[in-house]
Amino acid sequence: MLEESAKQLFATHCKAEHVRKAQQTGEIETLLNELVHAGFVDALVPEADGGAGLSLIDLAPVLFQAGAHAAPLPLGDTIVARTEPAVPSGSGAVAIAPGPLETTAKGRMLSNVPFGRVASYVIARSPADWHLLPLEEATVLASPSSGILGADLLWPHDAPNGLTVERQDWFRIGALMRAVEMAGAMGRLLEMTVAYAMEREQFGRAIAKQQAIQQQIGEMAEHCYAARISAELGLAGFTDPSASAIAKSRVSEAAVRVGAIAHAVHGAIGITEEHDLQLYTRRLVEARIAYGGESYWNRELGQALLNTTDSSMEFVLSVSARKKMPIDL
């Protein structure tokens, strides 16, 4: 049910034309309002405080749909941020800064903040604690290194510090949400690639009939399925850093192959600005390296295992323990 209503919402308010417009102007108000009205944005807030009182894994279908429509906002990050008392209701989108707040000659600066162009607030480390900073007084500087929707954010030296937030693991949350987004986008890329292979003809027949194409798309489907299930593991084990590490590492690795095969099958048309493929594949390229790539999270995971006395199987079982086995079946 949640999945159907999310699907409908994004299909109406997050079409390719909306995504393109948001990329040009940073404008996301209609989509954000719809997400608030649907109850998705405050879904983790307890019912007593006006939210839906759900847990993050319940929202997996909504977050995957956001990825599948290249939603131009940090939905998962905002949903978690709304559980912070410091974040006012009706606060707009909340981005997470991957690096610390730095003092420069021009002012106080956050570099390369994903979704910095569309956010109303950003959560950032400065220097020891995490703070909530409003973007009202900030200068938003889009740059090629910040990505499609990302930006450098600059405040005057005398800008207030912002309120402290309770959670201290925002970098990891940013990584997990990018993994979930990528898994959603990969599902959409698989659909697009299958459809294109069946319609595109070469050598007198649909390229889908070529074994070489079938083998590539078969492999692509494997990576999509693996990405989705490891993203679910990350959401189910939300409080476990190793579950997030598994999700970000595994999904990022899958994203490389999925993006490559999607482009290989689409051929030259997929390289054009006009074709929608790039709305997804460029986001994969960015999300893969946002908040740590595979190497970083693999190292974290390896160190976490070495710091226990667990066998590798015991370690894996402890991470998935939060996902209940359907033992009654």
Binding site: I229, S230, E232, L233, A245, R250, R299, L301, G302, V316
Partner: peptide, 30 residues
């Protein structure tokens, strides 16, 4: 893994990748 614990080396990243794959495959199999 037992040898890495007894004789520390810098293979954390490779070990971690194996775990990320193993955990994902187990979820798929389940």
């Amino acid at each position: 893994l037992n040898w890495l614990r007894a004789t520390p080396q810098s293979h954390d990243e490779k070990l971690g990748r194996a775990i990320a794959h193993l955990a994902t495959l187990r979820e798929l199999s389940i």
